[in-house]
Design a protein around this nucleic acid. Sequence first.
RNA 1: AGGCGCGUAGCUCAGUGGUAGAGCACUACCUUGACACGGUAGGGGUCGGAGGUUCGAAACCUCUCGCGCCUACCA
Length: 938
Amino acid sequence: MLAMTDTPTLDQPYDPALVEPRWYAFWEKHGVFAATDAPGDTRPVYVVPMPPPNVTGSLHMGHAQRCTLEDALVRWHRMRGFNTLWQPGTDHAGIATQLVVERALAREGKSRHDIGREAFVSRVWQWRLETGDRILLQQRILGASPDWSRSKFTMDPDLSRAVTEAFVRLYEQGLMYRATRLINWCPECMTSLSDLEVENEEGANGELFEFAYEVEGGGEVVVATTRPETMLGDTAVAVHPDDPRYQAIHGKRVKHPFVDRTFPIVTDAILVDPKFGTGAVKVTPAHDFNDFATGKRHGLEEINILALDGTLNGNAGPFAGMDRKEARRAVKKALAEKGLARGAKPHTLTLPRCQRSGGVVEPMISTQWFLKMQTMADKALDAVHSGKTAIVPEEWVKTYDHFLENIQDWCVSRQLWWGHQIPAWHGPDGQIVVAREKPKELGPEWKQDADVLDTWFSSALWPFSTQGWPDETAALKKFYPASDLETGYDILFFWVARMMMFGLHFMGEVPFRRVLLSGLIVDETGDKMSKVKGNVIDPLDLVRGTSFAEMAKKTLPGAPEAEAMAKFKKAYPSAAAMGSGFPAFGADAVRFTLATYPPTNKRIALAPRRIEGNRHFLNKIWNATRLALDLLGDYAWKESGAPKGFYNRWIRSRFAATCEAAHAGLDAFRVDEAALASYRFFWNDLCDWYLELVKPILRKGTDGTFAHPDLVPETRETLAYVLEGSMRLMHPLMPFLTEELWQRVPRPPSRKATVAFGPYPTPESEHDARNAEVDAQMATLQAIISAARTVRSEHDIDKKAEVPLHVRCDEPALVAFLRGHHDAIRQLVKTTGEPVFEARGGEREAGATVSIVPGPSGPIEVLVGLKGLVTRSDELSRIDRELKKIDRDLGALEKKLGSPGFVDRAPPEVVEEARTQRATLVDGKARLAESRKLAEEL
RNA sequence: AGGCGCGUAGCUCAGUGGUAGAGCACUACCUUGACACGGUAGGGGUCGGAGGUUCGAAACCUCUCGCGCCUACCA
């Protein structure tokens, strides 16, 4: 079926570099990741999107983490028989890339206007292809293969159609409008921004500068400002109506010192806090949001003093042409020269910065397209409150509410070229026509609006635009609404809330039933990843391995190497201690590790050591499979009934419990619980105990025969069963390794091609294997073996030396059970001859140690004969340690049983259990005390 | 200023009322026929602090300290 070269052999250690590319290529070739869309299939559908890629540093790991969970969920859903659709989302990488391209152009002394729209967009794509965009990384980690070739060098035509349709409909419904308002403007990107795209930098050092305006008719009024240069746009001074200091000047006018105009002193109780500064506020309606609102209340003039690139314009009089910083110094100096400066105080303030360029954002009066949000927001709120869509974890509901309850109209136009151009045409006399395409009757003098739409506008259409909307396609009918959406909490507002609003508006139904919000990855010290901090880790470096020097160079390009390394080591102390770089952990190890963090964890401090540990787990699986295949020999898959042998029944019971735990975890979006359950089962149950126990059964002795020929067939069946089942169980968490191994293990002939097509093991299919009694018996057996091993270890007994063993307990059934497992005990403890099982109370061999194991109904004594091997001090300290533990447990129990009210008020079964435990401990303690006496005589 | 969250072993993290857990790190022994990316055994925590509810609190309540994120404001 498969023809692959370079097949790795199990004799070599697991090497992800050999295994992962093989299966990545295979899945891609066979379209395992493509959407399944069988006609006529009406089963529920899960849609899990690929997240928007992002080339800026801080979000890399967050996206990688989301990929991992998404992939796990997608695969799991498919394995359960659901159809799963998977498509790349709206392309956000370009929006960040275009800034890079603009800067590159600037270095050539050009602007985008010099090369034209088409060439510009094409260069953005070029840059992305050449530099290896995030989207490529996601394909690698996810194994996804979206067909994005058709969108090369242009915007996706289908998406453009949906975007245009949505815009036109919103316009026709009166929700989309054009208005001249104060908006956030990034002078570096030369575009407007939405509120969400502005980041606030706290703690910036500034000063509160005070200066005086001369009042007409005599006197002055002193105002305070952090931005003296904006006084060039002042059109009022506001004071609080009740402030006694300023009663006399209400209604008077002040004179502008630099420009030839006067403006009024107004009273305003909303804007002015009499306790702050001087109690008098300069009002600049064109460059401050509060002042803008104040201006509207008082009918003030709006004087724009800034050009689009942030320099001062003609309205700034003598200061025109200066940039913002220069103007500030000049204005202060000029005020001082006129004798109007009144001093300055230090003041910390928050600077609004552009999310993409980092430039300081300016409030600017500008004509833009806005979308009315109120009605849509109310519907989206209602959809969550009524339970039509559930947000997981629930704590995010409050955040969602807060955003939608306080939502402002959305400024959707951007003065950029990367994006969907607005379908509006401007006539020569300022007329505007909005249409799906340019109406024929409009002449060439009608130009299309040069602006594009915010990328999140098209993203908000994602749940239905990807299904062929506005056409009523079969896919749309089938895949809308989707079941689950998984994404990082950082785009709850940007994306999730807007998909909810648009979904309800255009489709009349919620876009998805559940939304899982997962955490974001931060560095080892808990800081968000950012290029400035030099703490960005590219997940691909973890997958492929790299030197820290290389990583530092990438994360802080152009910085001196020593500085970059120092920053990196500070952010990742434990990683730095690992040596000079990361080994290639492989995609499976990275994925599995990320899956072990619960989604309730908002911050995930990336610990490469943890990845390393899981990398070892993968190797363990590899080697265990090698052993299992060796033990299975030429075994061919056989449909088997329920096993009769004890170990076989036990491992099937454990496997069933694991499937149950894994399902419970996945159902509740707790992938970490599924991962942990699988880990424990495979390592602690299967490897540590089951494989050790079946070795003597499945291996021929020196005489060439099996010790228990009757057990061989069902033991092989069981081993093969849990091995193959484990691969299917763990496949979503580590697709590459499990695929490689699954191809080699015995499996039902009906299963073809790839483990991804196999059914996912379910609690139902394993239910009959659950057996609490077997679990309990095995626990006792394990405790006895461990106790004997502890004695060996504590006394430094040679690995090969055999010791006599007696196990004593008062329960005949238990004695019989243990006797039935003398082989295993003998082998795992390494006993001299057969271990002896008997009732308690008999004489004790000289030189024997006693350990107490709590049994189901009383203490079990484990006696290890150490004649001549034991030293007095070793044995005393071992017994003392055991006594200490018993005393500690006993103390807790006595306290509990002795405290007033416990016996009366606690549930009877809790009291009963405590009493039983106490009896067992008291009994055991007496026996230990006795052996301590004997040990003293050694 | 408000909202949300976090604080548990040296590190990264589980644990929503019944005797504190995992991985890594650490100690000792073991290169045993799957695996040293391993095995067996061991050490290590007054669960940030104080008070309260309860027979019983890491968990629930109140206050408090430290940290993070988000939103708003900042003349």
